[in-house]
Design a protein around this nucleic acid. Structure first.
Lengths: 187, 187
DNA sequence: GTCTATAGGTGGATAGAC
DNA sequence: GTCTATCCACCTATAGAC
């Protein structure tokens, strides 16, 4: 393959950054042009409409996330340790001053085209399914509660510029999920 | 006082609706003009800039919420019952297909003027303080965890149009906070 | 307090040269 | 693949009549 996809990737990176830090409706092709250092109309060559870009970003984000989940699956550790690893995926996002891409999109979901809405819901459903099979009670309701806490925790922590709050929230959550896990240290 | 504040209130209602369902950056004065049935420039008479409207909406929302908290305080019930009442405040918002105004604003917080950012953080801080004094362990970290779960739960439930998910998430949360509370029925 | 008219800017998107 | 030039719709906001 000799076709360079470099600009395409840079555009995805820039769009993802903007959505995670400012929201889908608060960035424009002009913003991306400035970041990637090409002119505005050139973006349309790679992604004809803003929706196309939104869908591509979300699909890549979901694929990356799913790949991380399979990596956690390979580990020989307890479900609780894997839950820590899972929470750390979120923490890595927060540590670069972003919230989850799909949480950022979810708050504005009714302003988005249907195809993108579907992609967002798939991300959450994938995560619910993975967590459901991880936890001892195998209940989707518990999995949804865990995801809600992590997503809400990111929004709270980021909006106050207090990343450490998230760490404490995760610790609270895990303590409640496994009252005997107090010996664990989550950093 | 003979000055009618009717239009002012209608504008606040309309702006609040738009922010909670579509986000701050996805609505315009044209949208409000259509809802309130006046012309676009008339809105500027009441709220010169969009920011002024945003601040007024957030302040009113916060005041209303705080008033509800003092109403809960007056009740002669257990902290757990009061926590149910608190969760029900969120559920009422969700039942009309909205998320929390301040969660909707918080995801886009870095696109907003500083004065509005402060107002949003105050809402969360008020809630953390109230919850901290409600719960037995009196820890802000636990209070933040509870708020995160409720806010994240609303976003998850609303983005999937599955309001019942929120009810289940609250039940999971309360079960973890008080393992002996299984007899409670939360609807 | 609400209106018409309009300014000045930016949004996403297209045409066509190179 | 990237550019210049340009379109039209929409944005927030102002001026000034009624």
């Amino acid at each position: 393959m000799t076709i360079s996809t470099d600009t395409k990737d840079k555009l995805l990176d820039a769009a993802q950054l903007m959505i995670q830090t400012r929201g889908y409706n608060a960035f424009s092709y002009a913003d991306l042009a400035k970041i990637v250092k090409i002119r505005k109309p050139s973006i349309h060559y790679h992604y004809p409409a803003k929706v196309d870009l939104g869908i591509a970003v979300t699909r890549r984000y979901r694929d990356n996330f799913l790949h991380c989940l399979t990596e956690i699956d390979k580990l020989q550790s307890s479900w609780l340790d894997k839950l820590y690893d899972y929470a750390n995926l979120y923490k890595e996002v927060l540590s670069v001053n972003r919230i989850c891409l799909c949480a950022a999109l979810a708050t504005d979901i009714h302003t988005l085209p249907r195809k993108l809405q579907t992609e967002i819901r798939s991300f959450f459903n994938d995560n619910v399914d993975w967590l459901t099979s991880l936890i001892p009670n195998k209940r989707k309701e518990t999995a949804r509660m865990i995801i809600s806490t992590l997503q809400g925790g990111m929004i709270l922590a980021k909006s106050h510029n207090e990343i450490d709050w998230f760490t404490a929230i995760v610790q609270e959550l895990i303590a409640k999920l496994s009252p005997t896990a107090n010996g664990h240290t989550y950093k």
